[in-house]
Design a protein around this nucleic acid. Structure first.
Length: 465
RNA sequence: GGCGACAUAGCCAAGCGGUAAGGCAGAGGACUGCAAAUCCUUUAUUCCCCGGUUCAAAUCCGGGUGUCGCCUCCA
């Protein structure tokens, strides 16, 4: 498989450090609020990468953190009159709810910054000992000029970066590019004891500390949104490589932004939609399909119209699935027919094409196109006259490929007795050509999200959420 | 000022040297009691513009134009 590496600015063949095992770290949310769909993109993208790596046989050790202490956390907790810990607990739980809706699997671990203060302090100590950090009135800063590779990820020299710097927060820092590893406690803030007095960690240090704790000094893949390239990931490199002297990350992978009217969605611009709100009007699986329909490195525009397009596309996929389910009930015992082998072989070809595209920097847009092509072939060749084996095979292949993308995961097709009774009643009415009654029952069920489709071989029932 | 990305049908969106995937929407047809779903046909002689390289360019190079991003918390 090939992956685009931000560090090298080119696609590279992916070979993990340890055969058969992938160590992957992705920056998770700061849990001070519900997350928006801009935040959702990396979660979905890297969940998909993880699923694919597992699909092709790797064991993936996947770590995604929760930032549960920083300025935003403190401010928000103050505003709500609760502790930072209570705020974090609440939004971590809410994160899991939305993530579940988006089809995002749990990581191997979801470490929290506040539960790794010890590791963070140890790391800062090493940096101090090596002369890469300095203390200033209870704060500790990383001395960016002392790290010779500073800027290698964002492909800027420290001078270029400095030239563009817009604001300077702390005049006392030795260099504008120096960043806080440890922040001295201010009144009313949560704090931990440290060799430099009471305080709390800076933002960047937690990821270095936790990634190295769970995955080792050198990890295979580190992911996140483009906006983390600088300064966050640049600083992670400085911290980790500064302390160990070893390469920190072998493949840096970054997803593009989610835009609103061609402009980056962000909390500060206020042009964002939370996943929670979208979930009130759409099945969140629609959002997942929407995200995967573009290449992960390209920007993606978000709008209701586009969401509706994704919704229709998802329905096409679900229709194919329910078609097959319907046919499975009606092809029991049917023997394999001559000529069916060609169809079965064709299905295997789709898997190969799917993998080809996923192997090329996990091009989910192309992979999805392969699934749609396969769906068309399945729809046009499988029928009530097909063998059960052919129908099963089509179903299995559809399941296999869609599940790699985390799609088509809902298969709740159980109907309660009352609905079954109404369907029977309608069948009776249709036999008697009582179209009025039949149509009114159909409309009634439709309002409940039950779609009835009449086929020559009985009624097909589809549940819509 | 430094670094970078993008511009493909009505709307999205792949493709990145070999003669325009896929989805949504639209039109016509088949099927249906009517629908729905599905299938078939159809919708870009052409990929922002101008030059160049090449047997061959949406794809490479040069120059424009436009949009966006990072250099500040941010996924």
């Amino acid at each position: 498989m090939k992956l685009y590496n931000t560090l090298k600015r080119t696609k590279e063949k992916f070979v993990p450090l340890t055969d058969g095992v992938v160590k992957m770290y992705v920056c998770g949310p700061t849990v001070y609020d519900y997350f928006h769909i801009g935040n959702a993109r990396p979660f979905i993208v890297f969940d998909t990468l993880r699923r694919y790596l597992e699909y092709i046989g790797y064991r993936v050790e996947f770590i995604q953190n929760f930032t549960d202490i920083d300025d935003k956390m403190i401010n928000r907790a103050h505003k709500e009159g609760i502790s930072v810990k209570e705020l974090a607990d609440k939004y971590i739980e809410e994160y899991y709810k939305d993530a579940r809706g988006l089809g995002i699997k749990r990581a191997t671990h979801h470490p929290r910054a506040t539960e790794h203060i010890k590791e963070i302090i140890e790391l800062i100590k090493v940096l101090m000992d090596k002369g890469l950090a300095y203390e200033l009135g209870g704060d500790v800063y990383y001395d960016a000029t002392k790290f010779k590779d500073y800027g290698k990820l964002s492909h800027q020299t420290i001078e270029d970066l400095e030239m563009g710097a817009r604001i300077e927060v702390n005049e006392n820092k030795k260099h504008p590019m120096d960043f806080a590893l440890w922040k001295a406690q201010k009144p009313g803030e949560p704090a931990w004891d440290s060799p430099w007095g009471k305080g709390r960690p800076g933002w960047h240090i937690e990821c270095s500390a936790m990634a190295m704790k769970y995955l080792g000094d050198t990890i295979d893949i580190h992911g996140g949104g483009r906006d983390l390239i600088f300064p966050h990931h640049e600083n992670e490199i400085a911290q980790s490589e500064g302390s160990t002297g070893k390469p920190f990350v072998r493949y840096w992978v970054h997803n593009g932004y989610v835009n609103i009217n061609n402009q980056k969605m962000s909390k500060s611009l206020g042009n964002f939609f939370t996943v929670r709100d979208i979930g009130k009007e759409y099945d969140l699986e629609v959002v997942r399909l929407f995200m995967l329909s573009a290449h992960y490195r390209n920007p993606i525009n978000f709008s209701e119209e586009l969401l509706n397009q994704a919704k229709s596309a998802l329905e096409r996929l679900y229709n194919a699935k329910s078609n097959l389910l319907h046919l499975m009930e009606r092809t029991a015992g049917k023997e394999v027919k001559p000529g069916e082998q060609a169809f079965v072989d064709a299905l295997d070809k789709y898997r190969e094409k799917f993998k080809e595209h996923m192997n090329d920097d996990f091009n989910t847009a192309d992979a999805l196109a392969v699934i749609f092509e396969m769906v068309r072939e399945i729809n046009s060749t499988v029928s009530v006259d097909s063998s059960r084996a052919a129908v099963d095979k089509a179903m299995a292949m559809l399941d296999e490929l869609t599940s790699v993308l985390g799609l088509l995961t809902k298969d709740d097709n159980d109907l309660d007795d009352e609905i079954k009774k109404k369907i029977e009643l309608r069948e009776q009415a249709r036999k008697e050509k009582n179209w009025e009654l039949a149509d009114s029952i159909r409309d009634e069920l439709l309002a409940q999200g039950i779609v009835l489709q009449d086929t020559p071989h009985g009624v097909k029932v589809i549940k819509r959420s």
